[in-house]
Design a protein around this nucleic acid. Structure first.
Lengths: 226, 226
DNA sequence: CGGTCCTTTGATGTTAGTCAAACGCCGTGG
DNA sequence: CCACGGCGTTTGACTAACATCAAAGGACCG
């Protein structure tokens, strides 16, 4: 669904709509992006920004999914996080990118200048607060992620990933997973074969059901996943 | 050294002194803690705050080292990050703690109320900015950490850990590691035996030298570690 | 000197990684 | 319509890395 060509009008999917309501209710970050942001489109797997390049812009996902990653010279990849509709990403304290960003699905993002954002934040306490909140949320998710990578086995990682994705997409029950097995593997610190095998195993245990490779039915309140 | 009983006067070690200079130069967070903060002491391994409890205070390490961790009910622990002199920690967006904090060494912390800090940040753009910077730094380190846990083998993790610790303690060359093997293991997603064995192996390869279990000499510019 | 705690080492087990190939879905073109 | 090729996913056989279980050093303190 998100992989399909984007609609040409400005309607949003259910999740985006929820975020927009929040924005109308006064989220200054959302407002800033909607008023001053330039819109850009990226096709699936396009690079949004690269590691080491100047970090002079900040992004907000309008539609689709983006990933933040780091590479080694031998091609290994770690996906630090995925960003969904309404998420702000690409704001760094340093002047150059320490990570790169890519489109997971076709997606649409809103872009504002970093200097502009920071200058506004310095004058506007509410905006700075929202900025800080966004980092805080990310930090919170990172702690969960660290826990997964450090202490959980493959089954727990995959199951937790499905549940977290369901939550972030506001779709409890049945989730349309927007990312490939390779993306999941690189996010969970596993390899693609292990992810696939683990999904098969979870299916055998009845923890999940599949409707095609990308559509997962979750057995809610099943087992701990954090 | 940091494990020894704390001096009773107000002198700081070299690292703290550097941080203090930064503070005098105008770090509003440091100033706030120095002016309005209440001082508290914790003995090594004391709990500073627990998971789930109300997150109504924010902390800044004055001396010593603290760790942020999460537990499973079966006792497994993941240390998300260590905090050194000058680091602010314990600021959460939600009202309750999603992690717990403990003292690694005997340490001294400065404490301010969360509500007070946030109220000030809302009025003071510079303070909000500093707050955001602190989260940003943490986020940056978390990305490195995620990469380590997801994609690096035991040797790379341990070596990277030593180098990062050296950097954060401002001691290139010889580092006094303040934490136990168990702490290192729980931070790197390894077990204690693997950490010990890996250190032995690195010593054999000449990547590090040991002067006692806690003092490590690093072969600077040796191998990639991030 | 004996105890405790932390660290190291050894032997063995388990999990996930690697290498290789087959499957399934889909779009293209004969 | 069906054969072909490409791509993402799954499965299989085997290997490597780390975990687990167990015990022996080694430093520190009473």
């Amino acid at each position: 669904m998100l992989n399909a060509t984007l609609p040409t009008d400005t309607r949003h999917c259910a999740v985006s709509a929820l975020r927009c309501i929040a924005a109308e209710a006064g989220d200054p970050l959302a407002k800033l992006f909607e008023n001053d942001g330039a819109t850009a489109h990226f096709r699936a797997n396009d690079e949004i920004f690269a590691e080491e390049e100047a970090a002079d812009a900040v992004y907000r996902v309008t539609e689709g999914v983006a990933r933040i990653c780091k590479f080694t010279e031998d091609g290994r990849r770690q996906i630090g996080e995925f960003h969904f509709s309404g998420d702000v990403f690409g704001l760094e304290y340093g002047s150059h990118r320490s990570v790169c960003a890519e489109a997971v699905t076709d997606c649409r993002v809103s872009i504002v200048g970093r200097a502009q954002l920071l200058a506004k934040a310095r004058r506007d306490g509410e905006l700075a607060n929202a900025l800080w909140r966004s980092s805080c949320d990310a930090l919170h998710r990172m702690h969960e992620q660290l826990f997964l990578l450090g202490r959980a086995n493959a089954a727990d990682r995959v199951l937790a990933f499905f549940h977290m994705t369901a939550e972030r997409l506001n779709s409890r029950g049945v989730v349309e997973i927007p990312m490939s097995r390779q993306d999941i593997a690189d996010h969970l610190g596993l390899n693609i074969e292990t992810v696939s095998r683990t999904i098969t195993q979870l299916r055998g245990e009845g923890a999940i059901r599949l409707e095609g490779a990308r559509r997962v039915c979750l057995d809610t309140h099943d087992r701990l996943y954090a």
